[in-house]
Design a protein around this nucleic acid. Structure first.
Lengths: 349, 349
DNA sequence: AGTTTTATCCAACATGTTTAATTTATCAGA
DNA sequence: TCTGATAAATTAAACATGTTGGATAAAACT
């Protein structure tokens, strides 16, 4: 057994409660006693038992993180470590620890969250994704357990505290950029439609086209969370249309890397033959060949703001519901070029 | 206050201790009583309080993960999410939760570990890195706190349970592969020498050259954890030697991507002008241009084995110290080609 | 001496687990 | 069928380690 406050109390010749108050720096204890107790703590090398503390306080100072299931590409995506770093920084500032959900299937994850919540293992939860239909989110709302979402909730937006970019606007702007370069046939390659980001980005994309009076073309829109397999096929298909797109908006850098790779294999050069614009601006976007023009969504900040918001929620009984929008920024590199020449000539098909 | 075993006990008309035993499925309780108690638990929607349990059991079923400090490239590297997935799977199998150290500086991290350990927040710890000199590791050893290292410890290898690849051998084999392709001038670009992996890989590299009777050339060896900045310079320097290398062993895919990028900018083509071989085989190694020949070290497995080993350590009082070597495999893609032609002709310099 | 103020302590509580004690049931033998 | 011995089931109480409201004692002030 380790050293407890009783041991300290005995050595300092005071009651355990006094020791507890010294730790909390309670003003009811005289400075003299505080000194005495502190000396005893040092002598014994005392460290408070966090578990006992949590039990007494009904608070663990742990934040639970819920990730989408691990089979998901999400996990491979550099988005994850970056957002985690932000979360970590935010938590660290206020001495919170992070616990992550383990669990492969959605059911296991849900079970894990229930354990965290009902087992009082965590004080609050951060969802690292937002889906159209999510058991976990519903559960947390039902139980009125404090939580924050990274990403825009699908419904009841005004009742949930969340941190997100304005993906709709970002996508619209990105598309406008391509339009401004003279592109008129623009394709969209998106990920899983169950994620709200995907939806937002596609809506922004469509809106931009509509505003430019370009009728949207369903054939130009591809959904798949491919990276390699299938992607190749999807792209050939896209490029074999009578009127192939001259530019692509890709919902994620990793995916864009896959696209780039496929195009290279097909001997189609970027940006000469086709322009590519993607999202997230993860580390390797600038290391790709050619470096990707990408919308920086400040992933770190998403995480950082999320933990801060949750902590605020936890420390303030009647903290209002908040929406935090992290600014984005188009980083122009070389994967997009202007399309001034005739499309037919320009495209190898 | 939530529902406790007392509430359940009252409803089922038994003692709290009986309820506790029902939860633990203790054979001392009759089936009849078990049924009765379970019914009461269901009726009340009882969920045991994990914190109270931890206190009583002196065990939290939480594993602490220690990452190198977040300013480190490590965090950006896809290595991290992958190893985490492995860790998560291993932990999940046995119902362990994962808690990660937050903390930006090395000191903060150390403090965090002390909190975890002395505060009894975790049952054991996994170090996700191995450095030549590490305060955390020394601390854990001193306190005899259960832990496992991912990577080979720098000293007292036989007293520490660890999971690693045989990086020495892997690097030697990789270098031999380049030798077998006819390369004689081979450079090495490595990362931070404080990490043991780097050391192992460079030793393997040198050994292979020695065995091939090629005297090693210090000018061919570069260390920096660059990705972009500085890297360019380092590479130009390397290629401006009188006898520039015709092949490079790069200690990490992400770094290799940086190298690739720099080379592309310098209009040096891979593998025609120079071959590149790297380590880790992370997701995007095959998405790069050209796809990288890389040593697959089975990152997932490293994590998976690490959590399993730690759990074994925790459940078995006198579990022996173990060394677990995860096999590696050279994945040949297209970034290496054979060097049959004369070097001077082949190289643009 | 009586009243405040200040410092410290006691005991209850947060929620389970577990040892040892007690109660209840079962069976052999009279 | 009843007694006592034994086994089985259940309970009470102690414990794991802190926190905190109210009680108490000591000191300080009228």
């Amino acid at each position: 057994m380790a050293i407890t406050i009783k041991d300290v109390a005995k050595l300092a010749d005071v009651a355990p409660s006094t020791v507890s108050r010294v730790i909390a720096n309670n003003p009811r204890i005289s400075d003299k006693t505080k000194e005495k107790v502190k000396a005893a703590m040092d002598e014994l090398g005392y460290h408070p038992n966090f578990i006992a503390r949590s039990l007494a306080n009904q608070s663990t100072r742990v934040i639970g993180l819920v990730l989408p299931n691990s089979t998901d590409v999400f996990f491979q995506n550099p988005f994850f470590p970056t957002v985690l770093r932000g979360l970590s920084d935010g938590a660290n500032e206020r001495q919170y620890a992070l616990q992550i959900s383990t669990g492969k299937t959605d059911d296991e994850i849900f079970e894990g969250v229930v354990q965290m919540v009902q087992g009082r293992r965590v004080d609050g939860v951060i969802l690292l994704y937002s889906r159209t239909e999510d058991k976990v989110l519903n559960y947390l709302r039902e139980r009125k357990f404090p939580f924050v979402v990274i990403g825009k909730p699908f419904k009841d937006v005004d009742q949930i505290t969340y941190v997100d970019n304005d993906n709709y606007k970002a996508s619209k702007e990105a598309t406008n950029y391509l339009l401004s370069l003279g592109h008129k046939q623009i394709g969209f390659i998106g990920g899983d439609l169950n994620f709200v980001v995907t939806i937002e980005r596609i809506l922004g994309f469509e809106k931009a086209l509509r505003e430019a009076n370009i009728e949207s073309n369903d054939e130009y829109i591809i959904h798949s969370e491919f990276l390699r397999e299938g992607g190749q096929e999807a792209i050939s298909q896209l490029l074999n249309l009578k009127n192939p797109p001259t530019a692509l908006v890709v919902a994620d850098d990793l995916m864009a890397l896959g696209v780039l790779n496929t195009l290279t294999e097909m001997k189609i050069s970027v940006p000469e033959d086709i322009s590519i614009l993607s999202f997230n601006n993860v580390l390797f976007s600038e290391l790709s060949n050619p470096p990707l023009t990408s919308v920086d969504i400040n992933i770190f900040e998403l995480g950082y703001q999320a933990s801060r918001s949750l902590i605020r929620l936890l420390s303030n009984e009647n903290e209002p519901v908040r929406r935090i929008i992290v600014p984005h920024k188009l980083i122009k590199r070389v994967s997009c070029s202007s399309r001034i020449i005739d499309i037919k000539t320009a495209h190898p098909n």
